[in-house]
Structure formats: structure tokens, C-alpha cells
Design a protein around this nucleic acid. Structure first.
Lengths: 357, 357
DNA sequence: ATAGATTAGTAGATCGATCTAATTTTTCGG
DNA sequence: CCGAAAAATTAGATCGATCTACTAATCTAT
């Protein structure tokens, strides 16, 4: 069944078949209007007949642009980044650009290797979410030294940047809880050493102060940014002399872990205790007690980043741009808006709807 | 600060600087041993001095191979696929191959577009997890018609295939539950129309029969393969005249939803009711009640797929190969091995460990 | 010392598409 | 029907690295 390795069909083959020159075929392919309608049709027929496949590589070499960009993400297994990535890919595909993906796994060494590979490819530009310690000057030098590059989710000095207003996110969360009557609000902080964690903590601290509440360091619990981290943090907080009545969480996974811990302690999340998540990942809506969370609009972030890159490629010398997206609060059940205690139980649905496998 | 767009440094520039020919520089770059040590050093010095960046595109054109392969995945947001993808990427990177990622979002149209783009690029081969209806003859014709291609996770007739033994996975799960004394075991089935769902259901049915248990269609509940689906399915099952005492689940998300529902109904999962998941995603271990689950070893799957592709590229005419990985059972708490009711509570850990953001 | 083998280095063609500059063909006013 | 302008087409150079085939230099062995 395996066909014999036939050599690639090239412009020259088409040209011979359609009885025109290589150049004319190229014009037809690129839809240049100076070709007579009749020859155009003849060429197209030959292209179809011989099963011609365009060779981007060759075109890139001559044109000095590849219509490919590199995309380096720090951890592809995170739902937030997966969404960003999809949005970037879709936006760039719409502009006729192919995306080369690299996953740095938060490793600086891998990141460097990826950057090198992508420069060699060569790509017309790069999108990067730097690995944790990405703010070192050494890295930014490497980045800015060559092709158009845009940072997203985590800023890099000297590069265009698309990010979200993390501080505003926690501000929304805290104010929401305050509005529901909570006066002791914990912050389950994740890792406050990465830029997103730092900014979210800042937002928490400032808002608490602004609302005239006491800023109590005991209410700030750093944790592993996972379900387990959220679970453990609630246990810790419950042992305080003056325990909190609500918590805003570093991300949705932490929030879901927190909910689990509360249930375990016999508390009713939503009714007895308010929980706000961060990111609005799909599981926030799928959870049985749906999660009130800060929607960081990953798809919009991806689209924005892609657009910044397209602009930068077009005008390499334009001044550096920073776009910060404002998150919104998604109010659901985990703060008591409508507790699941009163909810009618759903009936099992069929499997027609798609979802994770 | 923006440097002036300087034209690319090429072999010719290096050659001029090191006072040798283009060809010699090329030999040095490719580490061909026929170059005298002294000239080699001189050339390397010039390369470093002028900041030369290798141009893969140009090399690919001449060599007729790109050292790039396409990777098309049906849904990158799923943790299982994200893991597979990382493993593939790492294995190929070790072989000096760059991966072009495409996400088809389970859409046939996108998949076709991606295949075309990757053929144009051109890539030396492709790895594909076909979108749901990927077993149609039309698709397989497109795939097999040109470059070396390997399917993974979902088979495509006529292509090399790396997959997991889904039927054996549910067999392990059912037998484990049987061994613990369960005699009415439900199967929360996800979507039995995709190949993985169908195979898992087959494994369930055969094992149940083999063990001499009654195959009761009421115990098979198709559902949305999400937490919500698992939750709803347990509610449905609990209303049966003769409810089950255990369930094996289509995947970990379903299993976690099921656990949530059991807790909600006042049952103690692990003690009163056995639950087995599928895939061994990170959340299975991170859950408070750790999940007994079928480990499908996504990283190993990825590695295997990558290796199949490397072999296929090397020998395009070798007979088609299929590698099926045998899953293993990860015994944790959700079947009563050691119920979390007796577990000491963990103390909150610091944020030194890395984890999802 | 010299033929023959080995080692080191190079000129020039080549991969496939595109660009430039030129040529051929067509159109059309007078 | 001529000649100029416009339209359609093309030859040949080019992008950057690699390959083939060849030359030049050095080394052996008799």
C-alpha cells in the first residue's frame, strides 16, 4: 500500500504541464492580478492535476519572512495557559501565520534552548511567558536582541507586554466579600514570589486597608497553588484564634480545595464561609457548588498578545506597548449568592455534549 | 534602544572573516571531522564574533528534510493530552527535531487545515490524535497519502499507532473492586461513541461477565466526561432499586465528581462505596481523598509515539506497527484501601514546591 | 625520489519559490 | 496599419546552506 517515495512536485513541473514559465505559476499561486484569466485557469488545473503542495520553506528563504512565530509557554498543563495558547494560535492562524509551540516547564535552561531553536528556524517573531525567574536582565537582553518579541502573563522589561491586572482582580474579590458582610477575609496566596502572586497579594493588602479593615498577616497563607494547597490552608486558618469568615484564593484549584476542606470540617461553603477563586477555569463552572471567581479572560489575553506581536512585526521600531486587561468578577454560588443547599438536583444528562475525556 | 535591522549574518560573512570558503564553514558547523583543528578554531571564533545564527530553513531546503514534525492534538486543554504532548516534544527534541503544534479542538475542518499547513511547511512527519470521527476512510486517505505519520491515543487504519489498552484498564478496575467484595459495580461511561469510551465499556462488560456477575445495562451510565457528569451519574445510580456499591469511571474528573456526589448524599466514598478513576491525572493524587485510578502513563505513550515516528521516518516502507501500552492500577484511598476518615490531617506546607499557578 | 594514498579545502550547482528587469504580446488612438 | 502605451509573460539572479566533484597539499611505502 505504501506509495513509492515520489519526488516533490514543484513549480517547474506545473509550468511544464501548463506550458507557461515558473514565474507565471508563482504569480497564479500568489493571486497576483496581472495574470490573464485563461492562463490562470489552465495553471490551476495543472496544479490540481499534479497534486502540487506549496513549499513554505523555499518561499520563506527568498522572501526573508517565514510566516511562522514561536510561542513559548511556561507550563502547558495549566488550563489557564492552555486557553491563552489556543487563542493565540487562532488569532495568528487567521493572519496566515503558523505557530511553533515550546513548553519550558518553568525551566530556564529549556527556555533558552527554545529561544535559540526558534531564532534558527527562523521565525518572524516570538511570544513568551517567561519562566519564573524571567525578570533577570540577562534574559531580557537575549530576548530583545533580535526578533520581534511579546511577553504575556508575566512582564519582561523592554518587551511589549499583554497581561492582566492581578491587583484589580483581588480587589474585586475582596470588595465582593466585604459587600456580603465579611470583615475577616483571608488570602490563600499561592506563591507570592512570582509576579502574578505578588500582584494579587498587593491588591489584597491595598483593598483591605482601603476598606478600613485590619491587615492581619496571619490571614495571608502562602501555599502550593493546587487543590491540596487550598485544602491545607483552610485547615490552618480554621485553627486561628479569630478565624476568617471568607477567603479569596490564588486560583480556582486552590479555591476548590478550600471548599473541600470546609465541607470536611462540617461548614457549608457559600452559606457559612465565602470563597472566591481566580481565573474562571472550566472546572469553576463545572463544580457542583459553582465557584464565584475572578474571570481573567485567557482567550482575550491570548488574542491581545497575538495582536501586539502582529503590530510589532509590522513596525519593529514602534514604541513599546503594554496592554493590561481588567478582570471581571463571575458571581456564582460559593459566596452565598444562591447556595447549593437550596438547589434542585440536576438530572443526569446524556453524553451528547462534549467535554474533557 | 531598538537596534537597526541588520541583515542576517551568513556563512559567507563567516567565510570572509575566517578567510576560508563557505563550504569549510559549513563543515565546521556540522562537525564534519575532515577539518583541521586550527581552521576549525578560527572559524568558530569568527562565528562567535559575528553572532552567527544557523538558518535551518535554508539547510532544510537543500537537505530535503526539515528536522521538524507536526503534532496535531484533538484537545490540548485536557491534562492527559497535555502530558502526552510534553513527552512527545521532549523525545523529539532529544533527537534534534522541532515540533509544530496544532490543536484541532475536535474539529474535522481545523484538523484538515492543520494537516495541509504542516505538509506545506514542510515537515518530515506527523503525529496525530484524530478528532472524534477520525476513523472515516476519507481522513485516513489524506493522512496516508504523503509524509510519515503516526496516530496516537485513537487509532487510524493504515497508520502506525501508539495507544493504550483501554479494555484492560477497566478490567483492572473491575477486578480490583470485585476483589474488595463488590458485586454490583457500575460503569460511569463517558461517551461510549469515541473509541476510548467504547473500548473501556467493552472491557467492563467482558470482565463483569467473566467474573460471573450479571451485566445490568442500568449500571452503565453515559455522561459528560466531566466532574459534573460524574456527579449527576451517581445521583441517577442512587435512585435505582438495586443500587451499586462501587463504580468505575470513565476518567478522573468523572470519578472526582462522583466522590463529591457521594459525600453530598452522606455516604463515605472509600468506606461505603468504591470509586476507581481513569488516567491518573495529577488531581487524582492531589485530591483530599486520593483516587484509586487506572494509570495510563501518558508520558510513556508520548515517548512511544515519538519513537514510532522516528522509526517510520527512517524506514518509510517498513510494515505498519501498533504499540499498545498496558495500563496499571494505582491503588489509593477511594476504594477503602485506607480511608481518609482515619487519616491524620496534613499541616499546611510552604510554597516552596512548584505547582499549577 | 616518485607513484599512490590520504587529508584539507574549495568552486559551483542545487534545493523551490520569488523578485527584478526585460521581453513579448495585445490594445487602441489616430 | 503604425507606433506608443498597457498588459501579460518570462529569463535569470537570488535567498542561505549543502552536496558533488575536483584540486592542492601532505604523507607513505617502496
Amino acid at each position: 500500500m505504501a506509495e513509492i517515495q515520489k519526488p516533490r512536485v514543484t513549480l517547474l513541473d506545473i509550468a511544464a504541464d501548463a506550458d507557461v514559465s515558473r514565474a507565471t505559476v508563482s504569480l497564479v499561486i500568489r493571486n497576483v492580478p496581472t495574470v490573464a484569466e485563461e492562463t490562470r485557469k489552465r495553471v490551476l488545473r495543472s496544479i490540481h492535476k499534479l497534486g502540487y503542495v506549496y513549499h513554505r520553506g523555499a518561499a520563506s528563504l527568498r522572501r526573508q519572512q517565514s510566516h511562522a512565530v514561536g510561542l513559548i509557554v511556561s507550563d502547558i498543563t495549566q488550563p489557564f495557559f492552555a486557553e491563552v495558547l489556543i487563542a493565540i494560535d487562532e488569532r495568528l492562524a487567521a493572519a496566515g501565520i503558523v505557530t511553533l509551540l515550546g513548553n519550558s516547564s518553568e525551566s530556564r535552561a529549556k527556555e533558552e534552548r527554545l529561544i535559540r531553536t526558534m531564532r534558527e528556524f527562523p521565525t518572524d517573531g516570538m511570544l513568551i511567558c517567561p519562566s519564573h525567574d524571567g525578570e533577570s536582565p540577562k534574559n531580557s537582553r537575549i530576548l530583545s536582541s533580535s526578533i520581534p518579541t511579546v511577553a504575556f502573563a508575566r512582564p519582561v522589561p523592554g518587551l511589549d507586554y499583554a497581561g492582566i491586572n492581578n491587583a484589580h482582580g483581588t480587589e474585586l474579590a475582596v470588595k465582593h466579600l466585604y459587600g456580603l458582610g465579611h470583615r475577616r477575609i483571608a488570602f490563600i496566596a499561592g506563591n507570592p514570589e512570582v509576579s502574578s502572586g505578588r500582584d494579587r497579594l498587593d491588591g489584597y493588602r491595598q483593598t483591605v486597608t482601603q476598606l478600613g479593615l485590619e491587615f492581619d498577616p496571619l490571614l495571608v497563607v502562602p501555599c502550593n497553588p493546587s487543590r491540596r494547597g487550598g485544602y491545607d490552608s483552610i485547615l490552618l486558618l480554621s485553627q486561628l484564634d479569630r478565624p476568617p469568615t471568607a477567603a479569596c484564593c490564588f486560583n480556582d484549584a486552590v479555591a476548590l480545595g478550600a471548599i473541600e476542606a470546609l465541607q470536611h470540617l462540617g461548614k457549608k461553603p457559600g452559606a457559612d464561609f465565602g470563597i472566591v477563586g481566580f481565573n474562571n477555569t472550566p472546572e469553576a463552572a463545572q463544580n457542583v457548588l459553582t465557584l464565584t471567581t475572578v474571570d481573567t479572560a485567557p482567550r482575550q489575553l491570548g488574542e491581545t498578545a497575538a495582536e501586539l506581536l502582529l503590530k510589532r512585526i509590522e513596525k519593529p521600531d514602534a514604541p513599546i506597548q503594554t496592554v493590561i486587561l481588567q478582570p471581571r468578577l463571575m458571581v456564582r454560588e460559593s459566596c452565598g449568592a444562591s447556595s447549593y443547599q437550596n438547589k434542585t438536583f440536576p438530572i443526569a444528562r446524556g453524553y451528547a455534549e462534549s467535554g474533557p475525556e
